[in-house]
Design a protein around this nucleic acid. Structure first.
Length: 815
DNA sequence: GTAGGGTTAG
């Protein structure tokens, strides 16, 4: 079932790459759901099922675009209106579940016993044998395994499933059990086991139902494998199955989780109509989630407005999804506005709504507002849960305010909620002084470190120059059976150039492939219950913490030869493990190049990496070598792809690329790239006539931009216009730097301005701001020697660049 | 079969 991914490229989806075994394309296109507005009156809308002509119209468009949604004539638009009553009818004031209870009281009793006494295979079997005669049909067993799944106990759930299957001979009952098992495993993220159950079910002749297929679609979707979800979905027809509402919703939800482009989700949505399946509010919520998770808050807003205009009754899921879309995009005021509208629609904000806002404010650095909201939650009597507490803990920890983070933990525990792996991760994040103690407590609580926790530790170690420890941890997690993901590797790559990293990074990582090899024939039970040997005595992580001091002491000796070319080995290893590099990998590699002083190594590395991805590394290599004319077309299409990514990813890419070019003296190339970034609004509003805002830029990008801006100001002066009274260059306070107060950017800009003799001075009231009077700058720009210091030159020149650079100057001046 | 949290680049 699993597809083999091409080993590619920054175009890989950057989200959910911890589920890297399958290929997913990066498909985060910007879409707009805007105008023209659909008629909001229900009167001129056809009734459901009455839109034959429109349906025909849609059938002629196998890939309906959003234009379909925008067009009044489209089948979607028509049914969108007509569906209104249908949706409303389903959801007005109804609780979510109207299902009758199917299981018996005996099943509930059995659950208690299984939980209490089923400690191992044998005792569990005994409990089930005791209850066997009193448990009725598959419904009781389904209840059991679902409840065990809710408790996160997949291995007990599987035991119950197999116990039931051994006794059930009716195909349809077996099918029900299999669907429940697949869905339970899917919820727990055990997608390979779900797959195994499904395949067995199909082989044994009880899996050919819309329920098992839908369950598998959902299981794939939940783990981010939208590609496989789609395959299963589209294979249904060949099995003679017609997807129902649940199948469609599951596949649309897979789009949301997997980061599939909105257009594709709308396509599925259109297919629903064509096939006579009416969407419900869950369909819309998932569709909204597609926008939200893709970072497309504008598309989300438009869809939301559309639903409101149509008078569809929205529920708390709808509101929370749109609030999250706004929060993710930093649109906090818009989010707040939505929340203020909720009570009027009889939907009250809940703990999820508030947690989302708290996180949004925390991310935006508006901690006071985050705290206010948190306190408001308490005031309103909302019962705070683990996630809402963790959100606040993490907000404090992100700002290095560990004392307060710790206080929130205490408050949480006083209210009877125990810390989980995410809480500890937030606390360990800064690797502050009590890290070892916190880790001991973590283990004492019986929690297991997962890939996120390990990666966080590895990254912190790398950032502190403790690369040896980081590599030991990589080895450690591998031995524990935890598969490193792209984030783990990106952290390691980012450490290259910080200190020497020896070949054993690559060697150690090789062991990671061991646990990846799984026999498809091994039984579900075996796979599920294979417990890792955990030796608490041999506590390697604690030992690593113990090594920290020693390693820190010897760090000075660690600044030796940088082995940039080791990155090739890491890349190879990632390929073997089927971990697709992404745009962050690319940025990390460029950053490593910038830290290295060997032009030769950097160029060899980028040249070799072209074997993995010709476009990305071809452009980087070409620009580094100064072959601008040859690669600029290719560069444009790379920039086009990056443009589709979210703002911070795109700016990180431009920053890394410019930094490397600047570092190796390709200053005109650096200039070209920053101007391209500016043209594409990568750094939002970088400049006006009076102000240059560099706070989102790296030091190389910022310096190239200073040149570009001053040249631009110069052209204003030479055109005979007056400069504004006061000119400012903002470098920020370094809050975007991981190291608080580390104002490398300000220092780099200061040195540049000084070297050029530019008459800017540090503002007294704001240490991140350089200012000058417009008249003074104008006078300086008119001086005969100024142009010479403003125009950038390459340290390495190639004759073929003359033409493209002339073009770039022309492009630059009118900006 | 739908909503919120912890990991890289910023």
């Amino acid at each position: 079932m699993a597809s083999t991914p091409p080993h590619c490229s920054i175009t890989a989806n950057k989200r959910n790459q911890n589920h890297q075994k399958r290929c997913r394309r990066w498909t985060n296109h910007n879409v707009s759901l805007a105008k023209p507005p659909l008629p909001s009156s229900p009167h001129n809308a056809p009734k459901p099922g009455a839109s034959t002509a429109a349906t025909t119209n849609a059938q002629n468009q196998p890939f309906p675009s959003l234009a379909t949604l925008q067009s009044q004539k489209s089948q979607l638009a028509a049914d969108f209106s007509g569906r209104r009553r249908f949706v409303s009818k389903l959801h007005i004031g109804r609780p979510k579940s109207t299902l009758s209870i199917r299981h018996t009281l005996v099943a509930e009793e059995a659950l208690q016993h299984v939980v209490l006494y089923g400690k191992d295979d044998q005792t569990l079997e005994n409990v089930l044998l005791n209850f066997e005669s009193r448990l009725c049909s598959s419904d009781d067993y389904t209840f059991l395994l679902r409840k065990l799944g809710d408790r996160g106990d997949s291995s007990k759930a599987i035991r119950c499933f197999e116990f039931a299957m051994r006794r059930e001979k009716r195909k349809n009952e077996q099918g029900k059990l299999a669907s429940a098992m697949i869905s339970t495993l899917g919820r727990l993220g055990k997608v390979e086991l779900a797959e195994a159950v499904f395949e067995t079910a199909l082989r044994e002749g009880y899996g050919n139902t819309v329920y098992t297929f839908s369950a598998l679609i959902s299981a794939y979707g939940k783990s981010g494998y939208w590609n496989d979800a789609f395959k299963v979905f589209y294979s249904m027809e060949a099995y003679g199955l017609k997807p129902n509402l649940v199948s469609y919703n599951a596949v649309i939800d897979a789009c949301a989780i997997g980061g599939v482009e909105f257009k594709k989700a709308v396509e599925i949505f259109d297919e629903m109509f064509k096939n006579g399946v009416q969407p419900d509010l869950i369909t819309f919520n998932s569709l909204l989630s597609v926008c939200s998770r893709g970072g497309q808050w504008e598309a989300a807003r438009n869809l939301f407005t559309e639903l409101i205009n149509r008078g569809i009754d929205l529920d708390i899921f709808t509101y929370n999804t749109i609030v999250d879309a706004f929060c993710k995009a930093g649109q906090m005021d818009a989010a707040l506005e939505i929340i203020s509208e909720m009570p009027g629609k009889n939907v009250l904000p809940n703990v999820v709504t508030y947690s989302t806002m708290v996180r949004g404010y925390g991310k935006a650095g508006r901690l006071d507002e985050a705290l206010n909201l948190f306190n408001k939650m308490k005031f309103l009597g909302l019962s705070l849960d683990l996630i809402s507490y963790n959100t606040l803990v993490s907000a404090f920890a992100m700002l290095g305010r560990f004392e307060e983070a710790w206080d929130v933990c205490k408050e949480m525990e006083n209210s009877g909620i125990r810390k989980d792996v995410a809480t500890y991760n937030a606390l360990l994040g800064g690797l502050y002084e009590e890290a070892m103690e916190i880790f001991r407590e973590f283990e004492k609580a019986g929690l297991k470190a997962d890939v996120v926790l390990y990666t966080a530790l590895i990254d912190t170690m790398c950032k502190n120059g403790l690369v040896e420890s980081a590599v030991t941890l990589l080895d450690e997690m591998t031995k524990e059976g935890i598969r490193p993901n792209v984030v783990t590797y990106n952290s390691i790559i980012d450490a290259f150039g910080l200190s020497a990293i020896t070949q054993h990074v690559v060697d150690d990582a090789g062991e990671a492939s061991e646990f990846q090899v799984k026999s498809s024939s091994s039984s579900v039970v075996q796979e599920a219950t294979e417990s890792r040997v955990t030796d608490r005595e041999d506590d390697r992580i604690i030992k690593i913490f113990g090594k920290l001091a020693a390693e820190k002491a010897s760090q000075e000796n660690n600044c030796g030869r940088q082995e940039l070319l080791c990155i090739l080995g890491v890349f190879q290893k990632m390929r073997e493990l089927e971990i697709k590099p992404n745009v962050v990998t690319f940025s990390s590699i460029l950053n490593a190049c910038s830290r290295c002083d060997s032009f030769e190594d950097a160029s060899i590395l980028l040249e070799e990496l072209q074997l993995f991805d010709n476009q990305v590394y071809g452009v980087a290599h070409g620009l580094l070598m100064g072959y601008r004319e040859n690669v600029w077309v290719q560069a444009q299409s790379l920039f086009d792809e990056v443009k589709l990514m979210d703002f911070s990813t795109a700016s990180a890419f431009y920053n890394a690329l410019t930094d490397m070019l600047w570092h190796y003296g390709q200053k005109r190339g650096a200039l070209l790239v920053v101007l391209e970034g500016k043209r594409r609004q990568v750094w939002e509003n970088v400049w006006s006539d009076s102000c240059l805002d560099l706070h989102l830029m790296s030091s190389g990008a910022a310096r190239a931009m200073v040149h570009a801006w001053l040249l631009n100001i110069r052209s204003i002066v030479f055109d005979g216009h007056k400069l504004p009274k006061l000119l400012s260059i903002l470098t920020g306070w370094g809050k975007h730097s991981k190291v608080v107060g580390h104002s490398a950017l300000r220092r780099a800009v200061e040195a540049l301005l000084t070297s050029m003799g530019a008459p800017f001075q540090l503002a007294r009231c704001n240490l991140g701001r350089f200012i000058s009077r417009g008249s003074v700058v104008a006078a300086w720009l008119r001086e005969s020697g100024t142009l010479k210091v403003l125009v950038l030159h390459d340290d390495r020149t190639h004759p073929e660049n003359v033409r493209v650079d002339q073009v770039s100057n022309l492009q630059m001046l009118p900006l």
